[in-house]
Amino acid sequence: MKNQSVLKNITIGFLLLLTFILIATSTGCSNQEKQTALILYNENDPFINTFARQIEELISDIPNCQLETIDSQNSQIIQNEQIEEMAARKRDLLIINPVDRLGSYSIVKKMKDQKIPIIFFNREPLIEDLNIWDKAYYVGARAEQSGQLQAELIMGLFGSDPGQLNQYDRNGDTSIQVVILKGEQGHQDAEIRTAEVVRAFRERGFKLEILITEVANWNQEQAFEKMEHILKTYGSRMEVLLSNNDAMAIGALERMRQEDFFHDTNGNGRIDPLDEDWLPVVGIDGLAEAVKEIESGYLYGTVLNDSLTQAKAIVELSEYILGMRDLDGMNFTIIDNNYIWIDYKVFTLD
């Protein structure tokens, strides 16, 4: 009997020790705070960077909500690992800017399995993928709208009448000679923006002569490089430069300035559309640098991919998903169960 009680004591002591070790090694954190993660395809993308800072700032205003920002370094494999880890850590919500929009279906399936809501942004997953789960959302702008707005900007400049183009039709052939700087070939946005801007002109009856569609992969340097050849070949005939994004437009402007394109011919002390050799260059995105170019008169305008409004929509949607906000209390409308669409905005000096 005595022996047994000794053994019992030893056993109990052991169990206590083991429990202690187990407790000490496991992270016993169970607070009421909502844990969310923001996963970016590439933090080095200035637009995404700005976008992320806006989301972070807005979420920091929400009480009891933690946000962790993660950079996927432009690799879907890395991003998948990060999502896996976040899922394992039982995050309450994942805000994902996918690297590969086609890979979203497996993310949606897995998160549906783990019951973790997701908000995609900036890269739109396929409808069929988003429809897999009603807690998978997309917040973004319609890519086609950006092309349309770009076209409208130019059409306005040219007098809005396809039959009677104003002085910006330099050779007076009632047709607009354009050079298009395209984003990554095959990239959804690049394809859509390019197609839509052209379609919008033609829809309104404007005659368009595409001198060249050059792929510069969204990249400022590539645009700068490729513009050398383009200017040599088409520089004299070019009437409009349409760029799929601001970065490429800025690269092009750099090359154009280098090739002696813009002059203050009317001597008003600044570059503006009234100068004789002024050429309209338009971008998309509304980068801070682009705004500077617009203010200095070189860039005619840009179509603002309104990241601030998108960030607001993402944060409101997050609040809704986390049960902190009613559907009625939202300033944005969820369309087709999974979407919040944010309009592009035209940004010019006016």
């Binding site: 494999i77 690297v99 590969d100 890979g103 279906y105 497996s106």
Partner: peptide
């Protein structure tokens, strides 16, 4: 290990 292959929608 399961990894989606980019562009293809394969895994």
């Amino acid at each position: 290990n399961i990894t989606p292959l980019s562009q293809t929608r394969w895994r």
